[in-house]
Simulated assay, not measured.
Amino acid sequence: MTHQNTTSTEQHTDAPIYAELVKERGDVLEDTRQVAAKVLRQAEQAVRLSSMRSGPA
């Protein structure tokens, strides 16, 4: 999966209704991406810690 460093608003500047919704409701797609990235980092850390506790197989 590739992710460009642009916000949803920047990706949809040609859709004025989308930009208006983002102003009213916030950028839900960008918020979701940020939360997903945080959860992924936490999961990776948990896996690393788990493998350290159990030692080599």
Rank of each mutant, 00 (worst) to 15 (best):
A19Q: 12
T9F: 13
A19T: 13
N5H: 01
L49I: 01
P16T: 04
E20R: 14
E30M: 06
Q4K: 04
V35A: 10
D14A: 12
T2R: 10
Q42K: 00
A36D: 15
R53Y: 08
T7G: 02
A43H: 07
A19M: 09
V35P: 00
S8M: 12
H12Q: 13
V22Q: 03
E20W: 10
T32G: 11
K38I: 07
Q11C: 08
Q45P: 00
S50D: 05
E24Q: 13
T2E: 09
E20V: 03
L29N: 00
G26T: 03
T7R: 05
Y18C: 01
A46R: 01
E44S: 06
M1R: 14
R53E: 10
Y18N: 05
T9Y: 15
R53S: 10
K38S: 15
E30V: 01
Q45C: 05
D27A: 07
A37K: 14
A15F: 10
I17Q: 13
P16K: 07
Q34I: 14
Q34K: 14
A43V: 07
Y18Q: 01
S50Y: 05
Q42V: 01
E24D: 12
A37C: 03
S8K: 10
Q42P: 00
M52S: 06
I17K: 11
M1A: 13
Q34D: 13
M52K: 06
H3Q: 14
N5W: 00
S50L: 07
T9W: 09
V39Y: 08
S8A: 13
L29F: 08
K23D: 15
V47T: 05
I17S: 09
R25L: 14
E24F: 08
E10S: 01
H12D: 03
R53M: 11
A19Y: 00
A36K: 11
Q34F: 08
L29V: 11
D14V: 01
N5D: 02
A43D: 07
S8T: 14
Q11N: 08
P16M: 09
V47G: 01
R48W: 03
A43I: 03
L40S: 07
Q45L: 08
R25A: 10
R33M: 12
Q34V: 10
S50T: 02
P16Y: 08
T2Y: 08
E24H: 09
A36P: 00
G55S: 05
T32M: 13
M52Q: 09
Q42I: 02
H3S: 15
T7W: 04
K38L: 10
V28T: 10
